[in-house]
Design a protein around this nucleic acid. Structure first.
Ligand SMILES: NC(=O)c1ccc[n+]([C@@H]2O[C@H](COP(=O)([O-])OP(=O)(O)OC[C@H]3O[C@@H](n4cnc5c(N)ncnc54)[C@H](O)[C@@H]3O)[C@@H](O)[C@H]2O)c1
Ligand SMILES: NC(=O)c1ccc[n+]([C@@H]2O[C@H](COP(=O)([O-])OP(=O)(O)OC[C@H]3O[C@@H](n4cnc5c(N)ncnc54)[C@H](O)[C@@H]3O)[C@@H](O)[C@H]2O)c1
Lengths: 213, 213
DNA sequence: TTCAATTTGTGACCCCTTTCACAAAGGATG
DNA sequence: CATCCTTTGTGAAAGGGGTCACAAATTGAA
């Protein structure tokens, strides 16, 4: 079962399992069955087992899974056992909210550089929000700083008209993962990964469901 | 073809088509083929036609689709031809970013009320961001105000520990659509719709793809 | 040691979504 | 009006993901 194409949905669910296991671990629970985990994550128990089966055998028949071990294994699979170094580009309303998003830290995602096209304009609002002032650099320095600080993921929170421009800069700087919050589809070359977060698509979805009960 | 269950993926794509058509309309393009639209949205041409076929016949064989008409038809299908009245609960970092999110307005989503558990604390930072000061109400008034202002969608941007509490209040107030930004799965009764926006799930996804090239 | 109870891992089945391929329909041209 | 070209709409086939059901493994008690 180990070596086949992994459904993207499986990866999304693993992320959910990981969050649940985190909570269980903190609650001191030591063993969990696929049925229990499934209930908490609102999925089918066979689904849990099948998702895990893509990557190996983690359970003990008749017993279940050791919470701590399974959590570690899933983090290893997802790649969230390491620290991911991120850059944030566009320190406006959304950008400065993300700068102070505590869950990033908790989950080993760390913003290690912030860029804007007009740093003096934004420096005030950013320092105000956090305990210590944040260094906002000019976008012109992206390439050198990205290499220096070994940045692996770029968060794009510029206006939509600039999103592809910034994406190109990130690609040039060798940043392989891009997460785009602007409402434009961005395109990246082979070997790079871009994901879009479209708020209004989700809203449209909700609106459709409300309109067609 | 008209009356069958509509895949959720189809609805998501319709939202993409709508955005593209918006751009084309503004660019003055009058006619578009399924192949052209497909290329722009990075999907298969047959997929475009099949998605539309769920709802009727909108094209002209040998010609294509009239941009303006198709855009209107899709907006009607999605329910985005009407104005949606929303409440925002939790005016912290993310909440105040959303308050000033211009795309909401452009797409007929309107925040008509803002709530927090401590309005005096947040009023400053909100007024600063927008031209005119925003009225932030105490969460205790949610129920009455929701009815008064005919609120249909609630945006939850409180800490995760409060998300379900707020969700329950919204349900009680008869708000049928919920969009939750806190990293906790919220549960709502039959007849209500809740969607979660998990930033870190998307990041986990990206991290996985970067770890397993 | 044997047997009952529990829970995993997985083959087989089913359903939903996507893609393919082509007939049907409309437009343009002479 | 006839012919050719383009593009839609859709039945059929392919593909992928989810669910079911059961054999295999493990524990614990008789
Ligand atoms: N505000 C929200 O809640 C929200 C929600 C979802 C999506 N978005 C999207 O996120 C993006 C940012 O939204 P916002 O409200 O923060 O806008 P904003 O105007 O407040 O911030 C944009 C920032 O990007 C900077 N910028 C512009 N061009 C740049 C460039 N080439 N390089 C570097 N920095 C540049 C600007 O100086 C500004 O500080 C937009 O695309 C928006 O559609 C915003
Ligand atoms: N900051 C981000 O960029 C970001 C990104 C993604 C998700 N989130 C999530 O969004 C939520 C808000 O994040 P934030 O950074 O804005 O936090 P925050 O602490 O800045 O804001 C939370 C706000 O909610 C208010 N609040 C608390 N309990 C309430 C209640 N019962 N009723 C009404 N209001 C209440 C608080 O007074 C505060 O103003 C969190 O769940 C966070 O995990 C934040």
């Amino acid at each position: 079962m180990k070596y086949s194409k992994i459904p993207e949905a499986t990866i999304r669910r693993l992320s959910r399992y990981s969050r649940c296991l985190e909570e269980m671990e903190q609650a001191g629970e030591e063993v969990v069955s696929s049925a229990q985990l499934a209930t908490r994550c609102m999925v089918n128990a066979a689904q849990v087992r099948k998702d895990l089966a893509y990557f190996g055998e983690f359970g003990i028949r008749g017993v279940g899974y050791y919470v701590k071990d399974l959590h570690n294994d899933i983090k290893k699979i997802l790649g969230s056992n390491k620290e991911w170094r991120m850059a944030l580009i566009g320190i406006g309303n959304l950008g400065s909210a993300l700068l102070s998003y505590k869950d990033f830290l908790k989950q080993n995602y760390k913003i290690v550089a912030a860029f804007d096209i007009d740093p003096p304009k934004v420096i005030g609002r950013v320092s105000e929000k956090l305990g210590k002032p944040v260094e906002v650099l000019h976008i012109n320095h992206l390439k050198e700083v990205a290499r220096e600080r070994r940045i692996e993921i770029g968060l794009i929170t510029t206006p939509p008209s600039e999103a592809q421009v910034v994406a190109n800069l990130l690609v040039e700087a060798g940043v392989r993962g891009l997460l785009n919050f602007a409402p434009t589809q961005i395109v990246v070359p082979e070997g790079f990964m871009a994901k879009d977060v479209f708020f209004t698509t989700i809203l449209d979805n909700l609106a459709y469901l409300l309109s067609n009960p």
